[in-house]
Design a protein around this nucleic acid. Structure first.
Lengths: 188, 188
DNA sequence: TTAATAATTGACACATGTGTCACTTTGGAG
DNA sequence: CTCCAAAGTGACACATGTGTCAATTATTAA
């Protein structure tokens, strides 16, 4: 029994994402979020004790979505196909990298938030180790430079989506240039 | 006449930088800065009307420092020497990129801050155009991939310093890997 | 020593965010 | 229809940041 909810947790997460990208971690408030959800601020406290707990929980949700996609990489055949797939899902969610940076700003003190953050950090490690297979495959197939540390290769790939497009190149040209640079660098 | 100042603008900028990198844009306050400078908060208002004006002024100062170094690139001879020099000064000040991202968060309303921000954005454009010669030289010498847009190459170079070093590789190895990846990509 | 001047201080009034909680609303079970 | 539990509300007390300004302090020219 009990009355119907005015919003689902999924809806809450969606607005959280939009707001976080709009205003950043520090300026994100329960007041703002409540306004977007058309509920009283107090309502949100029924679900999350505070901002840090909410944001860390949101990021776990977000990372899970991404991991589901990421895990499919193993079914994609050889290195070339896996590489193409990885770039595809990264550019499908260019905001993930930014959200991760925002989440890194969280300095949790609340117990649940600390637990969430620890869990979230483990997920990042998991992501890297999950992709180690992909890197290893690339090196085995002689496609990746074996002298580069695996983690640096991964960091490089994920960082590349953050390259600014100040001069308003068409998105397709932008993506294509990045993939070319990640693959072969800037030199001839 | 008049009494001696308790701090110079340069000192103020130094503490501003440290604080901005420590706590980020939103959490940066005059209270915090005043504490670091061992003065009353009110004192800072004699020099800057508010946080946005201070941060934008600081970034102009910071960019000027960097530009002084950057402009020397033309005296460095051929493309290879210029490239080495550019990477050297970028890694000498890895924080510049982060500070630029922080400054991008400023949403100035105050008149002086808006003017500063406009000026700051012009400086970035200047930096890019100043480096266009460098890119052009590289392409002329047949060292840079001519199919890549100049601005993308520059964005790629500057973005690369932000690659995280989560797994604590020694700094030298980290820098060396980045330069290798920027130059030749991750593939063999 | 004193007057002029500039730097500094700290209290004040205001604004915004936080976490809590007694109270209200809603909807289904009986 | 009545009652209960879950969901939602909004006011309260508190905390922290902002911008201002009259008063205080330090320095030096005369």
């Amino acid at each position: 029994m009990g009355r119907d909810r005015k919003f689902s947790i999924t809806e809450l997460y969606e607005h959280t994402q939009v707001l976080l990208l709009e205003v950043g971690y520090e300026a994100f408030t329960f007041s703002l979020l409540a306004e977007r959800l058309n509920v009283a601020r107090g309502t949100i406290y029924k679900y999350f004790d505070n901002k840090d707990e909410l944001i860390t929980a949101f990021m776990i949700y977000e990372m899970n979505q991404f991991m589901k996609k990421l895990e499919q990489i193993e079914e994609k055949g050889d290195f070339e196909q896996q590489f193409a797939y990885l770039m595809e899902i990264i550019f499908e969610r260019t905001e993930i990298q930014e959200l991760i940076n925002i989440t890194m700003q969280v300095n949790a003190t609340n117990e649940k938030a600390v637990a969430n953050q620890t869990y979230f950090k483990d997920m990042r490690i998991n992501m890297y180790t999950c992709l180690q297979n992909f890197i290893r495959l690339g090196k085995q197939e002689g496609k990746l430079n074996p002298s580069l540390p695996d983690t640096m290769i991964l960091g490089f790939i994920f960082q590349s989506v953050a390259i600014p497009n100040h001069f308003q190149l068409p998105r397709e040209k932008w993506i294509q240039s990045i993939i070319e640079m990640v693959s072969n660098g800037i030199r001839t």
